[in-house]
């Protein structure tokens, strides 16, 4: 048995432990965007892959970086910084694409979001999620499902379905 497999084994065990410990809690994958920590429901995450050049879609909104090939499937990639109107940065070695399953009105889709870096997996008790305060004039707040405290820091939990079905990304009938 090589080291990798041991790791995988250990990870699996750990996951089982977490499940046993917190039956009522959900797991969230957190990522960094402009030094803020955001999180999405981990069950929605299909995979995480390094940033690679995407094919530009003509006449698409600026935040749609293009489409990538995910083992034969054409997957659109959205730059979350750009969508949230944050300051633009150069893509670095830690820049990743989180590929997620998005539930839409008509059908489910697969989409990727570009973030600065992935961070941790947290178990958050459903009761521990607080609703976000109403900050007028901030469009991004519409996409926030809630806020949660993990250790010292605040986690912004996002509603991915809302984000990736909004505006120009919405499905046509």
């Amino acid at each position: 048995m090589n080291a990798e497999m041991v790791d995988a084994e250990a990870l699996k065990q750990e996951q089982i432990n977490i499940k046993v410990k917190n039956p009522a809690s959900n797991q969230y994958l957190s990522f960094i965007l402009n030094n803020e920590e955001y999180a999405v429901d981990i069950l929605r995450v299909q995979e995480i892959k390094g940033w690679d050049r995407a094919t530009i879609i003509p006449n698409a909104p600026e935040y749609v970086k293009g489409v990538i090939n995910l083992r034969g499937t054409i997957v659109p990639v959205v730059d979350l910084r750009c969508l949230f109107s944050l300051e633009k940065t150069q893509y670095t070695a830690t820049t990743v694409v989180i590929v997620m399953n998005i539930e839409g009105e008509q059908s489910d889709r697969i989409m990727g979001i570009v973030v600065d870096a992935v961070s941790e997996v947290y178990s958050v008790d459903a009761n521990a999620i607080r609703s976000a305060p109403d900050l007028h004039g901030n469009d991004t707040m519409a996409f926030v499902k809630g806020l949660a405290n993990v250790g010292q820091s605040m986690l912004i939990i996002l509603d991915v379905d809302k984000i990736l079905n909004s505006n120009e990304l919405a499905q046509e009938n």
Partner: peptide, 24 residues
């Protein structure tokens, strides 16, 4: 292109080239 994104005017679909990149 529509299954995960939406219809794009002037584009009928996408394909994957020999090097693994997407071309429209």
């Amino acid at each position: 292109l529509e299954s995960n994104y939406k219809r794009v005017e002037g584009i009928s679909g996408a394909t994957i080239l020999g090097d693994g990149t997407v071309a429209l």
